[in-house]
Design a protein around this nucleic acid. Structure first.
Length: 587
RNA sequence: CGGGGUGUGGCGCAGCCUGGUAGCGCGUCAGCUUUGGGAGCUGAAAGUCGCGGGUUCGAAUCCCGCCGCCCCGACCA
């Protein structure tokens, strides 16, 4: 009697029937560990740049994440819907985002020459829906969500599922009668996100974030802490302050009290020295002594922005500080026109355009800057004396060691993977789509207040692996694992072993624990290696050796030693450990 | 879009500099032996050497053009 004749339960997946092809070596086109492991463990396969097929094993894990998301959304009172991925372009013209987001949108025309887009997100569609379906305060608050494929023409897809052109997202949208009510909806989603990521076994931090093209005035990103993350995050070592680098603020240290008497401005020849580095080396001073002068186009008009020579300008903060619609670095022609000098020699003294300065420059004296003349800089720059500053703002990119804006502590920098993002949108979209309701007192229609909430589902799955692996492979958290138990049939030809394994398997199935049965005619070492690689939470070794003592060997993934458990007790033992593991999903 | 790298059976690579008609490991298939941490032997299938053009008696190899993929940067809900 051999194992392939059967007596295993209907729901058990046999390896020989599973399309699980593991790779012994790292694929050449994968860089980060989670991407390598997803390919090696046979979870996904690449079709093209930023495009992946989910194989059966990967899809099962994905469905587990989706289920958690769904349960927590439902628990938070959100209603699941499903909107089209294919959308008419007019909707995007109505919100004014057709231009703003066009670069990253896939567009196409139908046979009637109507322009369509493949939805990168669904604010437009859902707001249009809300405007049609919601008429009364009695229907509010209302939060709608969907789990759906999104399309974005990423400039550079990378790291497998981390940044793909097509990916699965959970997007939710709340509609409320007032700002206060919207705050409650926001908080409900925030809390749901904390539960979702905890259940997925992830170590996340919610950080303050910029709102970008999506608009609105307040948002948090949920970051999975990981060195491979694409985003820089600043955390206070003393308090709870956390923000992504785009958003992060810093404490303004008070200007020096005793200001040196600054000698008059003095031009100094700096032929060919355009960069901070070149000038400071030429003049033999610290980069810090220089004032970096950056010419920007603020809503199309030139302006100068000053930061310390050793600092970077944060365009997002500049945009917010000035309340501008768009801010970008000026092109060379604009710079030459605004400063009267080639690029690299700009300075605040004598400029005719508005000059904004980083708050660290308040009271700056005896500094060096460009002279607005070719091959020339000036010494002894005193901002109060020599320049007209239109305003001081926190404009520099924050780095580790900067002062916390909320307390006396200092900031540290870490990397993170953005898996979720919650926004308070206000009325940007509801106004554009006239999403209004009639209030309790009747009268004229009121505009709904909106929030939106995204989770990158496919990215979350990969982030789990990025955070939960070891040298041997994946270490799935119980709640996300594609199966719960790897059952290794070591002696398929041994009828007693096969029979006992089948009994254990049927008991596990009866308890709702999914089993992956390794019924291949491989040597034990191969099965052990693959079990480690695939990383299911528990491994049961069914072999003649242990069965001689009436036992199977059981081992949680990552544990050093196996335990001998009597065959009759294996299922109950695993069931108990599995329930425990579901409870403690965070490390 | 700029910079760098790379493209050779399913996967990982060598061969290219110095042209002579393709090789290694893994995987796959068959057989035998093996069986507790990626087995051994024997045999087999599988590659228009990314695509197009050029040079040459002859091109994986040299030259030109194009494309894919990966990394860095810019960009990004």
């Amino acid at each position: 009697m051999s194992a392939d004749v059967l007596f295993f339960g209907d729901y058990t997946m046999r390896w020989t029937r599973s399309l699980i092809n593991t790779l012994r070596e790292d694929p050449q086109d994968a860089e980060i560990v989670s991407h390598k492991l997803m390919l090696r463990a046979g979870l996904i396969r690449r079709l093209g740049g930023g495009l992946y097929t989910f194989l059966p094993l990967g899809l099962r894990a994905l469905r587990k994440v989706e289920r958690i998301v769904r349960e927590e959304m439902d628990r938070a009172g959100a209603l699941e819907i499903l909107m089209p991925a294919l959308q008419p372009a007019e909707l995007w013209e109505q919100s004014g985002r057709f231009g703003a987001m066009s670069a990253s949108m896939f567009r196409l025309k139908d046979r009637g020459e109507r322009t369509m887009v493949l939805g990168p997100t669904h604010e437009e569609v859902v707001t249009d829906l809300a405007a049609r379906e919601i008429n009364s305060y009695r229907q509010l608050p209302c939060t709608l969500y969907q789990i759906q494929t999104k399309f974005r023409d990423e400039i550079r897809p990378r790291f497998g599922l981390m940044r793909a052109k097509e990916f699965i997202m959970k997007d939710a949208y709340s509609f409320d009668v007032s700002l206060d009510a919207a705050d409650a909806s926001y908080q409900a989603m925030y809390d749901a996100y904390v539960r979702i990521f905890t259940r997925c076994g992830l170590d996340t931090r919610a950080v303050e974030a910029d709102t970008g093209d999506i608009g609105g005035n307040w948002s948090h990103e949920f970051m999975v802490m990981a060195d491979a993350g694409e985003d820089a995050i600043l955390l206070c070592e003393a308090c709870a302050y956390a923000a992504n680098q785009e958003r992060a603020e810093r404490r303004a240290d008070p200007p020096a009290q005793a200001r040196p008497e600054t000698p008059p401005l003095e031009p100094v020849a700096t032929p060919g020295a355009r960069t901070i580095e070149e000038v400071s080396r030429l003049l033999g001073c610290e980069p810090r002594r220089l004032v970096k002068t950056i010419i920007c186009a603020v809503d199309g008009r030139p302006a100068a922005v000053l930061v310390d020579g050793d600092r970077e300008l944060n365009l997002a903060k500049l945009k917010r500080a000035l309340g501008a619609r768009s801010v970008e670095l000026a092109d060379d022609a604009t710079i030459e026109q605004a400063t009267g000098a080639p690029v690299g020699f700009a300075g605040p003294a004598g400029l005719k355009i508005p000059v904004y300065a980083d708050l660290a420059l308040r009271g700056a004296a005896d500094r060096i800057s460009g002279a607005n003349r070719a091959d020339t800089h000036v010494r002894h720059l005193d901002l109060d004396r020599d320049a007209v500053i239109a305003g001081y703002h926190d404009l520099a990119v924050v780095v580790a060691g900067d002062g916390c804006p909320r307390c006396a502590g200092h900031l540290v920098e870490r990397r993170g993977i953005e898996v979720g993002h919650v926004f308070k949108l206000g009325t940007k979209y509801t106004e554009a789509f006239e999403a209004t309701y009639l209030g309790e007192q009747g009268g004229s229609a009121e505009t709904m207040v909106m929030g939106c909430y995204g989770i990158g589902v496919t990215r979350t799955l990969q982030a789990v692996i990025e955070q939960r692996h070891d040298a041997d492979g994946i270490r799935w958290p119980a709640a996300v694992a594609p199966y719960v138990v790897s059952l290794l049939l070591l002696d398929p030809g041994d009828a007693a072993v096969a029979e006992a394994a089948a009994r254990v398997e049927r008991e596990l199935e009866a308890r709702g624990l999914d089993v992956l049965l390794d019924d291949r005619s491989e040597r034990p070492g191969v099965k052990f290696k693959d079990a480690d690689l695939i990383g299911l939470p528990f491994r049961v070794v069914a072999g003649a050796k242990a069965l001689a003592k009436g036992c199977f060997e059981v081992r949680p993934r990552g544990a050093k030693e196996s335990l001998l458990v009597p065959v009759d007790e294996v299922a109950a033992w695993l069931d108990e450990r599995y329930r425990e593991a579901l409870q403690e999903t965070t490390r």
